[in-house]
């Protein structure tokens, strides 16, 4: 076992590089997925059949085709049309489009969950369509969509492992290299723990976002007081008052 640990120590800089690639894919893919999700989620709510139809086809297509095949298509077929993307760009595009299509349903559902009275108040105040959405409705829907988006983000992180098949030296790839120097049990256990650590960090970050979004709606503590060590004491104090 101790020689495995020495191998792990030797491989550590490479594993860190792998984590770096995995994080770039996760953050890049998530950023693209968020843009795609919001754009498609908004389009899918339009009355105009053409806009709504386009969004629906897009959503169903990217949800209904395998991430691996999308990845292969972008990596091997797209160059035939003269578009050659780097492996990392292909990874980000495939993850962003695939998870963006799932996210679109979350965005659409959350927008629909904002009470009708809020929409009516924006009409009564003559806000424009854009103002309605971005100043009133979306900020409220945002708090509702974060828990589901957190789920998708964790799935996206785990989905990045698939890109190792288009020769990306991500965390999964490095773990596989470690396996060759050590053994299956050791390497894959290290892999599990590292992915779990990354997922935990992302979850913590998203929870902070959720606390902040809810606080802005006047529900729950501010992020600062939720993070401070005295938060339980101050909450108890409030309860008495």
């Amino acid at each position: 076992m101790s020689e495995h640990l020495i191998k792990l120590r030797d491989a550590w800089p490479q594993i860190l590089d792998g984590i770096g690639i995995t994080l770039v894919l996760t953050v890049g893919g998530a950023a693209l997925a968020l843009v795609v999700a919001i754009a498609l989620g908004l389009l899918a709510r339009f009355d105009n059949i053409l806009l709504r139809g386009t969004a629906r086809v897009f959503i169903e297509f990217f949800r209904g085709t395998s991430l691996v095949v999308q990845l292969f298509w972008l990596y091997f077929v797209l160059p035939r049309f003269g578009v050659e993307l780097s492996a990392i760009a292909v990874g980000i595009f495939a993850l962003g489009l695939n998870y963006g299509a799932y996210g679109a349903e979350v965005v659409r559902g959350s927008l629909n969950s904002v009470p009708a009275g809020q929409w009516e108040a924006t009409t009564a105040l003559s806000l424009s369509r854009t103002q309605r959405m971005w100043r009133v409705i979306f900020p409220q829907a945002w708090a509702l969509m974060i828990p589901s988006l957190t789920n998708l983000l964790i799935q996206l992180l785990k989905g990045t492992a698939i890109v190792s098949i288009i020769a990306m030296a991500d965390l999964t790839f490095m773990i596989d290299k470690l396996r060759q120097d050590t053994d299956t049990f050791f390497a894959y256990t290290v892999g599990l723990l590292l992915y779990f650590a990354l997922a935990s960090l992302l979850t913590l970050g998203m929870n902070a976002l959720e606390i902040r979004a809810k606080h802005k709606l006047g529900r729950g503590d501010s992020l600062r007081s939720a993070l401070s060590f005295s938060s339980s004491a101050s909450r108890a104090g409030k309860g008495v008052a």
Binding site: P115, G117, Q118, E120, A121, A124, L125, S126, L127, S128, Q131, R135, V136, P139, Q140, K216, L217, G218, R219
Partner: peptide, 25 residues
């Protein structure tokens, strides 16, 4: 219009609710 269920915007403070439409509309 004033509604039965008030319909104030929860993502804004009281004064932000009041100045929202005068400022932006």
């Amino acid at each position: 219009m004033v509604f039965q269920q008030f319909n104030l915007f929860p993502n804004m403070t009281v004064i932000e609710n009041i100045i929202e439409a005068p400022v932006h509309v």
